[in-house]
Amino acid sequence: MPLTRDAPTFLAVMEANKGIIYKVANAYCRDPENRKDLIQEIVIQLWLGFPKYDEQFRITTWMYRIALNVSISFYRKENVREKINAPLRPDIMDLTEDIGTPEPDSDIGTLHRFIRELREFDRAIILLYLEENSQQEIAEILGITSTNVSTKISRIKEQLKQKFQALKS
């Protein structure tokens, strides 16, 4: 059944996949204030792109593409919508407890730091991999071959492993 392109459906899609937006924004933007702006920008771009969403792709593939494209562009501080006609409160998402920025010394905090130290596309790949997307899905989101994805994942995992080892020793 084709997806209705109205506001309630969009809200339902956002509700069901809010984690995608948050995790992508978190991987590309460390500063909590800028992250709020980034999340807002992602949601705006998702809404603008919703009528054109091509149902041959999974909704999550479409969301990842937009969220990652916006985040990478936002990171370059260039393609950001500076002025919006209607002023918005930027907090699109809230955390009931502060787990968004884990303790820097914890394992997950260290993993986040290592992920942020990766280059943009490598960061996207490892994020999609940790989110248990298949190699085919990752290939579709990035626009590269599955073989390329597989090679890259192995290299990035090795990099992360070495970093953790170096930290422990």
Binding site: A7, F10, L11, M14, E15, K18, G19, Y22, K23, Q40, V43, I44, W47, L48, R81, K83, I84, N85, A86, L88, R89, P90, D91, I92, M93, D94, L95, T96, E97, I99, G100
Partner: peptide, 23 residues
């Protein structure tokens, strides 16, 4: 798991986005 349990989408603010006029 922790994130999914604690992350709340602010429906009001998301609805505002669907209503606003984009510049």
């Amino acid at each position: 798991r922790k994130l999914e349990q604690n992350l709340v989408l602010n429906r009001k603010n998301t609805e505002d986005i669907t209503r606003m006029k984009i510049g």
